[in-house]
Amino acid sequence: MDHRPQHWGRPRDDVYGAYDASYMRPNGPTTHTQSPVVTGTSVVALKFKDGVVIAADNLASYGSLARFPDVKRLRTFAGTSVVGFGGDVSDMQYLDRHLQELAIDENYTSEKGHTLNARNLHKYLANLLYHRRSKFDPLWNHLLVAGLDEDDKPFLAAADLLGTTFTSPSLATGYGEMLAQPIMRRYAKDEEAAAQLTRDQAVDIVKECMKVLFYRDARSLDTYSIAVVTKQGIDLKEDVKLENQSWAFADRIKGYGTQTV
């Protein structure tokens, strides 16, 4: 009887020759996530008078392949905040499980009616991301946190895989940074301008941004999730279709693909 557990369940050396254990040895350096695999594209969000609108499409891409067309990338927290995830989807799912657990723990330990507000949640996530980047094992995401702060004022902030954080009346990740942010800034150039926007206006602007992103971002989808966070709670719709698309402009585009003219 061989009493060493690491030898159990292996072909016998005396019959089959020495066991080739090379597959167990780490080959090369430790490899944490060095690049995202299944990814979500832009998240866009805009503050208005008494809340925040946030949207992201329902696609998880595998490189250029539209691999999972029904992945919800907006997650709610404690019924008061929404987190939008761009970047790696498995890291998003890890963070989601983590947040679920956090919400339950907070619910048990906190006084009634008191839980982490959006500002607290954003700080928590930013510190988590910064800690992981400092371990050289980053969570490959760019997040937007939407909700209300301690004074019930609209709160919107971003945190990325390096732990960089910032807030602005409008925010977008990924391609949205280039395509959606300029549109939103036209309507909300500063906090004062954003505080003038009504809920309907803000929703329309964000929907317009989702449309522009679908026109020009090859990793996007026409089905998306949109959430409105106000003092009254979260209004989350997860299967919204883009409306009033017009591809008339496509006719005028020449010089790409298989066209010969």
Partner: peptide, 8 residues
């Protein structure tokens, strides 16, 4: 160009 920055 990926829609997500910092991809090696």
């Amino acid at each position: 160009n990926y829609s997500f920055a910092d991809v090696p």
